Computed example of a mutant assay.
Amino acid sequence: MERCTRPWGWYETLTEGEGYLVKRLWLEPGQRLSLQRHQHRLEHWYVAAGEGVVNLDGTQHSAQAGSSFDVPCSCVHRATAGDQGLLIVEVQRGSILREDDIERFADDYGRVAAPVG
Protein backbone atom coordinates (compact mmCIF):
# COMPACT_ATOMS: atom_id res chain seq x y z
CA MET A 1 0.00 0.00 0.00
CA GLU A 2 1.54 3.27 -1.11
CA ARG A 3 1.35 6.26 1.23
CA CYS A 4 1.01 9.63 -0.54
CA THR A 5 2.38 12.49 1.53
CA ARG A 6 0.55 15.80 1.45
CA PRO A 7 1.23 19.09 3.30
CA TRP A 8 -1.62 18.30 5.74
CA GLY A 9 -0.61 14.66 6.40
CA TRP A 10 -1.01 11.61 4.14
CA TYR A 11 -3.46 9.25 2.46
CA GLU A 12 -3.41 5.60 1.41
CA THR A 13 -5.65 3.86 -1.10
CA LEU A 14 -7.02 0.76 0.65
CA THR A 15 -9.02 -0.74 -2.22
CA GLU A 16 -10.69 0.25 -5.47
CA GLY A 17 -13.02 -1.22 -8.06
CA GLU A 18 -15.50 -0.26 -10.74
CA GLY A 19 -17.00 3.03 -9.55
CA TYR A 20 -15.56 3.03 -6.01
CA LEU A 21 -12.35 3.86 -4.15
CA VAL A 22 -11.57 3.57 -0.42
CA LYS A 23 -8.87 5.71 1.21
CA ARG A 24 -7.47 6.30 4.67
CA LEU A 25 -6.52 9.95 5.34
CA TRP A 26 -4.46 11.25 8.25
CA LEU A 27 -4.56 14.97 9.02
CA GLU A 28 -1.78 16.12 11.32
CA PRO A 29 -2.87 18.08 14.42
CA GLY A 30 -4.11 21.55 13.47
CA GLN A 31 -3.92 20.89 9.70
CA ARG A 32 -6.78 20.97 7.20
CA LEU A 33 -7.71 19.90 3.70
CA SER A 34 -8.31 22.50 1.02
CA LEU A 35 -11.82 23.92 0.73
CA GLN A 36 -12.93 21.91 -2.29
CA ARG A 37 -15.65 20.20 -4.28
CA HIS A 38 -15.95 17.37 -6.79
CA GLN A 39 -18.18 17.24 -9.87
CA HIS A 40 -17.97 13.50 -10.58
CA ARG A 41 -17.96 11.76 -7.22
CA LEU A 42 -19.60 11.66 -3.84
CA GLU A 43 -17.76 10.74 -0.67
CA HIS A 44 -18.64 9.21 2.67
CA TRP A 45 -16.29 10.03 5.54
CA TYR A 46 -16.02 7.91 8.68
CA VAL A 47 -13.89 9.34 11.49
CA ALA A 48 -11.85 6.43 12.84
CA ALA A 49 -9.74 8.36 15.38
CA GLY A 50 -9.00 11.85 16.63
CA GLU A 51 -11.21 14.91 16.52
CA GLY A 52 -11.80 18.06 14.52
CA VAL A 53 -14.32 19.91 12.41
CA VAL A 54 -15.95 19.06 9.08
CA ASN A 55 -17.35 21.88 6.93
CA LEU A 56 -20.12 20.90 4.48
CA ASP A 57 -21.47 23.73 2.30
CA GLY A 58 -20.63 26.32 4.97
CA THR A 59 -22.05 24.38 7.94
CA GLN A 60 -19.57 23.33 10.65
CA HIS A 61 -19.92 19.87 12.20
CA SER A 62 -17.98 18.48 15.16
CA ALA A 63 -16.02 15.36 14.19
CA GLN A 64 -14.82 12.68 16.58
CA ALA A 65 -14.21 8.94 16.44
CA GLY A 66 -17.44 7.28 15.28
CA SER A 67 -18.79 10.32 13.39
CA SER A 68 -19.71 9.94 9.73
CA PHE A 69 -20.49 12.47 7.02
CA ASP A 70 -21.95 12.28 3.52
CA VAL A 71 -20.32 14.62 1.00
CA PRO A 72 -22.55 14.75 -2.11
CA CYS A 73 -21.34 15.79 -5.57
CA SER A 74 -20.80 19.57 -5.78
CA CYS A 75 -20.75 20.00 -1.98
CA VAL A 76 -18.04 22.46 -0.93
CA HIS A 77 -16.24 20.72 1.93
CA ARG A 78 -13.18 20.64 4.17
CA ALA A 79 -11.93 18.69 7.19
CA THR A 80 -9.83 20.30 9.91
CA ALA A 81 -7.93 18.28 12.52
CA GLY A 82 -7.95 19.20 16.19
CA ASP A 83 -5.11 18.75 18.69
CA GLN A 84 -5.11 14.95 18.34
CA GLY A 85 -5.08 14.83 14.54
CA LEU A 86 -7.87 13.27 12.49
CA LEU A 87 -8.04 9.83 10.84
CA ILE A 88 -10.75 9.51 8.18
CA VAL A 89 -11.79 6.50 6.14
CA GLU A 90 -13.15 7.89 2.86
CA VAL A 91 -15.37 5.93 0.48
CA GLN A 92 -15.66 7.52 -2.96
CA ARG A 93 -18.35 6.59 -5.50
CA GLY A 94 -18.64 8.00 -8.99
CA SER A 95 -17.65 8.02 -12.63
CA ILE A 96 -14.31 9.84 -12.12
CA LEU A 97 -12.27 8.95 -9.03
CA ARG A 98 -9.05 10.85 -9.74
CA GLU A 99 -7.25 13.68 -7.99
CA ASP A 100 -7.97 15.98 -10.98
CA ASP A 101 -11.66 16.03 -9.92
CA ILE A 102 -10.71 18.41 -7.10
CA GLU A 103 -11.75 22.05 -7.53
CA ARG A 104 -10.03 24.07 -4.78
CA PHE A 105 -11.45 27.37 -3.48
CA ALA A 106 -9.05 27.97 -0.58
CA ASP A 107 -5.89 26.19 0.50
CA ASP A 108 -3.35 26.76 3.26
CA TYR A 109 -0.58 25.35 1.05
CA GLY A 110 -0.89 27.47 -2.12
CA ARG A 111 -2.63 24.85 -4.31
CA VAL A 112 -5.44 27.10 -5.59
CA ALA A 113 -5.03 27.89 -9.28
CA ALA A 114 -4.88 31.58 -10.14
CA PRO A 115 -7.79 32.88 -12.23
CA VAL A 116 -7.08 33.04 -15.97
CA GLY A 117 -7.28 36.41 -17.71
Rank of each mutant, 00 (worst) to 15 (best):
L33N: 03
A48G: 10
E103M: 06
A114P: 04
D101N: 01
E28N: 15
E99L: 06
V54D: 11
T59D: 10
C73F: 08
D107T: 06
R104L: 02
V116K: 05
V112W: 07
H44V: 14
L87N: 01
G50M: 01
E103W: 04
L25A: 09
V54I: 15
D101Y: 03
Y20F: 12
L25D: 04
I96H: 06
R41I: 11
D107F: 00
E103K: 02
Q36H: 05
V53W: 14
V116H: 05
V116I: 12
H44D: 14
Q36I: 02
C4L: 11
A113G: 09
R41F: 06
D100A: 02
L97C: 00
D101P: 11
L21M: 09
R93W: 03
R32W: 08
V76L: 06
K23I: 09
R32M: 02
F69S: 02
K23V: 12
Y46V: 11
C4I: 03
E2V: 00
L35D: 14
I88S: 03
V54C: 09
L27W: 10
E103D: 08
R41A: 09
A63R: 11
W45K: 02
E43N: 07
D83N: 13
R93N: 08
R104V: 04
E90S: 12
Y11D: 01
S62M: 11
V53N: 12
G85E: 05
V116F: 10
F69R: 07
V76C: 13
L27S: 10
L25W: 10
T5M: 14
H40A: 09
I88M: 13
V22W: 00
Y20N: 08
C73Y: 12
V89K: 00
G66T: 08
R6E: 08
G50N: 06
Y46N: 01
L86T: 13
L42H: 03
W26D: 01
S68C: 15
L25C: 11
L21K: 14
Y109K: 04
F105S: 03
A48H: 06
S95M: 15
